[in-house]
C-alpha cells in the first residue's frame, strides 16, 4: 500500500513544518551563541540540511551515510581476524 504524493503532503504537512521550524530555530540559537569550536560537527549538520533540498532521491539513506564512519573492505586483513 503506497500513498500518493498528494496524500503524503496533506497528511504530514503540519508535522514536517514543525520539524523544519525546529531546525531553523536550532540554527538561530547556534548563531546567537557565538563561535563553534567543533566545526566538523557543524559542517555535518549543514551538509545534512543541504541533502534535504538537493533534488535527488534516497535522502534518508544519504543522510545516514553522511553521519557514518567509513567502511573499509580490507578490515579483516588489518585486524588479522
Amino acid at each position: 500500500m503506497s500513498r500518493t504524493a498528494d496524500q503524503v503532503l496533506e497528511q504530514e504537512f503540519l508535522q514536517v513544518r514543525a520539524k523544519i521550524l525546529e531546525i531553523a530555530a536550532f540554527f538561530d540559537r547556534l548563531s546567537e551563541g557565538g563561535a563553534v569550536t567543533n566545526e566538523q560537527q557543524l559542517r555535518l549538520l549543514r551538509d545534512g540540511s543541504t541533502i534535504l533540498n538537493d533534488g535527488a532521491d534516497e535522502k534518508a539513506a544519504r543522510v545516514q551515510l553522511l553521519f557514518s564512519r567509513q567502511y573499509e573492505s580490507n578490515w579483516r586483513e588489518k585486524f588479522g581476524v
Binding site: S68, R69, Y71
Partner: peptide, 18 residues
C-alpha cells in the same frame, strides 16, 4: 549505534557471509 552502524553492519555481513 549511530555513526558506527554502517561500518559495523558491513563488517558483520563480511563475517557471516565468509
Amino acid at each position: 549505534h549511530l555513526e558506527d552502524k554502517y561500518q559495523g553492519t558491513r563488517m558483520i555481513l563480511d563475517m557471516l557471509c565468509g
